[in-house]
Design a protein around this nucleic acid. Structure first.
Length: 185
DNA sequence: CCGGTGATGCCCT
DNA sequence: GGGCATCACCGGT
């Protein structure tokens, strides 16, 4: 078994943590059942830029982002989907890494999108605010590998579109494909 | 293969 | 009341 990723890993600037999370294992436990998937795509969001939910200040929805690193920020969007983030940096520096895609061992499409992976792993709002450095919460991360990365602009947003804050496992089948991106820029 | 669009509910203005 | 860090489906090519 791999080692669990400690809080110090997440307590750095979000643009350092986001690329480092690609290749790590995400583990979901519900009762006796365990799913282990590998992160293949992430995006960084930080209060200073307009695409971030915390850009206009603290609200009840984004409160977790203002807290300590290593906690889950799960939000509901488009009336039917959840997205899962991990809070980074220090307290009161609102920032988080959006987990955009994960690889399931037997199905390349199951985790190829932020809402799809939440559905496949049964991640919903009840996990908002849990500690992902503690297995007691049923959702944690373990050290994996450092694959070849491609860096591009973020997708699915209308503001802050020029920041190159999306990273994915180069040529991996499970990377989300909503928007076509040119490789190796 | 590709772009357009409807579903659906919560949060913030 | 508008907009949203999405997705699957539809129809034209």
């Amino acid at each position: 078994m791999s080692e669990i990723i400690p809080r110090s890993f997440y307590s750095r600037r979000v643009i350092e943590v986001a690329p480092d999370l690609v290749g790590m294992w995400l583990v979901r436990q519900i009762n006796e059942s365990i799913q282990r998937v590998q992160i293949v795509e992430t995006e960084a969001y930080e209060q200073s830029e307009p695409a971030c939910h915390a850009h206009r200040g603290q609200t009840s929805r984004n409160m977790v982002m203002f807290g300590c690193a290593g906690y889950a920020y799960v939000y509901f969007v488009y009336g039917m989907h959840y997205c899962f983030n991990i809070v980074t940096d220090k307290e009161n520096t609102a920032s988080a890494v959006l987990i955009r895609a994960v690889a399931f061992p037997d199905n390349a499409h199951l985790g190829a999108g932020p809402a799809k992976l939440c559905k496949a792993l049964s991640i919903d709002k009840t996990l908002n605010g849990i500690d992902v450095t503690n297995p007691q919460g049923g959702l944690w991360l373990e050290v994996g590998e450092s694959p070849p990365l491609t860096q591009t602009t973020r997708i699915g947003i209308t503001k802050g579109v020029d920041l190159p804050w999306r990273w994915y496992w180069q040529s991996h089948q499970s990377v989300s494909k909503t928007s076509r991106q040119l490789n190796n820029k």
